[in-house]
């Protein structure tokens, strides 16, 4: 593989890993703060699924990147070097906001992984085949709560609708790609993320309709940035907390 396509693949793998790590870290903040015990554990399980997926991806990235370790990608990069979709770094908010984020992201991840299973890159195809089972459950969990809140009490309906509306402007960024990615799409290694948008919209729309919620206006202004190294202000706080120990004690082993 040429250096260019290797760089493109590395960039793509890190993007997938960053999405999983940042969202997993966010969800882990619910641990011990969940609305009730069972749901606390459900979200912690989901967070651990994401961290597990991150490890597969960062380990693979390391093999493409001169033998770097998975810890390097998690603990030794700065905010602007993370390429996670903006929606994954948003604060948890109330439970409706966390569920809306899970719904938007899980529908996307499910579509992406379905395509990625067909990748000509055997490692990515293998990753996708493993991850899609976890993601299918995450999606089921998110849909279940969206229906409960949307079709629940007047207050739960209002709060779910607000969360759906608040987060919608960050959904477009999930579909952002880079110039590099085109070569991977042409080579059958990466799915064409743009092509997932129509199916994503259709699925989200159908869930919201069943939940008696209103799909936000498709013309809503969309914040972009994750593929051009620009983040929301929230990423720095996540990185600071996540990297504190490794920064304070560089190279320490335990």
């Amino acid at each position: 593989m040429s250096n260019n396509s290797n760089a493109a693949l590395l960039e793509f793998v890190i993007r997938l890993g960053d999405n999983n790590l940042i969202l997993g870290h966010r969800l882990s903040e619910w641990c011990s703060n969940g609305p009730f015990l069972e749901e606390d554990i459900a979200l912690s399980n989901i967070a651990l699924d994401y961290i597990g997926q991150t490890r597969i991806l960062y380990t693979y990235a390391g093999t493409l990147d001169g033998g770097k370790t998975e810890d390097f990608y998690a603990y030794e990069r700065f905010e602007h070097e993370f390429t996670n979709a903006l929606i994954t770094e948003l604060p948890n908010g109330d439970y409706a906001h966390s569920i809306a984020r899970q719904l938007y992201y899980s529908v996307f991840a499910d579509l992406l992984l379905t395509e990625l299973m067909k990748s000509k890159d055997a490692t990515l195809a293998g990753y996708a085949a493993k991850a899609i089972k976890e993601t299918a459950y995450h999606l089921r969990h998110a849909i279940d709560w969206t229906l409960r809140f949307g079709d629940g009490t007047e207050e739960s309906h209002q709060r779910m609708q607000k969360a759906i509306d608040d987060l919608f402007m960050y959904t477009g960024d999930m579909f952002a790609t880079t110039e590099n990615e085109k070569s991977l799409v042409a080579a059958g290694i990466a799915p064409d993320v743009h092509s997932l948008k129509a199916a994503w919209t259709k699925k989200v729309e159908s869930v919201l309709k069943e939940a008696t919620l209103t799909m936000p206006d498709a013309a809503t202004w969309q914040m972009q940035g994750s593929r051009t190294n620009r983040h929301t202000e929230h990423i720095g706080y996540i990185i600071a907390e996540m990297q504190y120990v490794t920064r304070a004690y560089p190279g320490n082993k335990w």
């Binding site: 009730f36 015990l37 069972e38 749901e39 554990i41 459900a42 399980n45 089921r140 969990h141 279940d144 409960r148």
Partner: peptide, 20 residues
Amino acid sequence: SVHAADKEMALMNARDLYSR
């Protein structure tokens, strides 16, 4: 045992607690 509002939630909670 688990707490849940209905059978679907009970099944999901049970999966999360007892099949980890």
